[in-house]
Amino acid sequence: MSYLKIDHVDKTFQRGGASTNVLKDINLVIEKGEYVSVIGHSGCGKSTLLNIIAGLTPVSAGAVLLENREVSEPGPERAVVFQNHSLLPWLTVYDNVALAVNKVFGSTKSKVERHDWIMHNLDLVQMGHAKDKRPAEISGGMKQRVGIARGLAMEPKILLLDEPFGALDALTRAHLQDSIMQIHASLGNTMIMITHDVDEAVLLSDRIVMMTNGPSARIGEVLEVRLERPRKRLELVADRTYIAAREAVLKFLYERHRFVEAA
C-alpha cells in the first residue's frame, strides 16, 4: 500500500492560444517516513510538481493520491515550506505559527495546548527566543526556520519543501540541513524536497528523483541513497556510497541531460 502515489500526472499550461506541456507522465510512489528529493535544472517543472502535490496547481491529466484519496485542493495535511519563506510580515514569528496552529487545531486543542504546541515547534527549529520578533527583524535563515516550524506545526502527513534553502548562504544552509535531518530523524515525517543542490539532495534523501529537462519533463531516474542515518556531513565527504551517489546525480544532470540554455 503506497502512502503517496503520483499517477500518470501530466501538466499543460494554457496561456492565450499557446499551450506548454510542462510535465509528462510522472509516476512516483512515496512511502511513509521517506525523504525524497526532486532535482533537475531550472525550468524543468519541479516546482510545478510540488505545487501539484500541494494541490495549489491542478493536474491536466492523471492524479495524486494521498492514502488512496485524491488530492484536489491545498490543505494543511500537505504543508508547504515555501522557497521565500512566505511569512506574513505584519505578524510576529509566534503569530505566524499561531495562524496555522489555530486554524488546524482550533477545534481539537485547548488554548494552552495550542500555545505549548506553537512554542514546541518554534523550539524545534531553535526559534523560541525570537517569538516576538517580526520577519523583517530576523535573518533569512531564521525566517526559513520559522517557515519550517509553521509547516511542521500543521502536523502534516507530508511536508513539502520548495527549494527551502536556495536563498541562503552556504553556512546557514548547512545548519538548516542539519536541523531538518534531526527533525526528520525524531519525527519521522514524510518529506518531499525540491532542490538544485546535488550535495543537499544526497545528504538528506532516501531517494533522489532526477527530472529531465522541460518542456515535457519526465522522471529520468530515481536514485536510492543507501547511507546509514544519522548522517554526518564531515564523515560522508570520504564515504564511497556518498561519492558514488553524488557522481550519479552529477552525471545525470551534466552529461545526459545538460541544461540547454534557451537563447
Binding site: E73, P74, P76, V80
Partner: peptide
C-alpha cells in the same frame, strides 16, 4: 503576493478569515 494566497490556501482559510488575516493587512 501569490505567496500569501498560497499560505491561505494551504491553511484553508475561509473567505472571512482571508479578508481579515491576509487581505486587509496586506
Amino acid at each position: 503576493p501569490q505567496d500569501y494566497r498560497n499560505v491561505a490556501q494551504v491553511l484553508r482559510l475561509n473567505q472571512v478569515e482571508f479578508f481579515f488575516k491576509i487581505m486587509v493587512p496586506s
